[in-house]
Amino acid sequence: MGAREKILSRIKEGVAPAVSLPDMSITDNWNSDIDVNVLKLVLESVGGEIHILDSVADVDSKLKELFPDIKMAYTNIEGVGFGNVNLDEVKMAHDLAKLEIAVLEGEFAVEENGSVFVSDNKMGNKMIPTITEYLVLVVSKDEIVKNMHEAYKRIDLKNIEYGVFISGPSKTADIESTLVFGAHGAKNLALLLV
């Protein structure tokens, strides 16, 4: 008998009490109207920034205002002229190591924790959201959910290879509990709500 069978048969001998799965509909009670201001405060509290724009057409000018002097930037958002990295030329991590800005489309934002869900089909290359120094996520104002229960109703993990909720810039407090931004991932994160 291999390890698999041995483990499974030992589990059968286990004596964990029978408990039925709880009714998850109770989590619906915690949904309510979205307050963009709450999202803003939470995102700022985790080190991110937020800019509220009138429309996607304003993204370009906002980016030029935020980043007047950039050598290496990537975006895959249609209609956004910012960015000069051609992924066809990217063969390995080395080629993206100096990426300064990535502008990606987030699927939705979560009011309670300032996170934005980004899935692999919107990343261009899976390493882009973490390897870039500065991450800009563009999300529609209509795509904000209250909390993580609502968030998980919006996605289907079966249909994505890799998907990540990103809440603010990368951080660490491993040196004497002092919060420092930019551990391994993006040092800065901006959310553009359009």
């Binding site: 985790v46 973490t130 993990l157 994505i160 890799y162 998907g163 810039p169």
Partner: peptide, 11 residues
């Protein structure tokens, strides 16, 4: 924190 910075799902 309200959530870790990265909550990553691999399928």
């Amino acid at each position: 924190q309200p959530i870790t910075t990265y909550t990553s799902h691999f399928t």
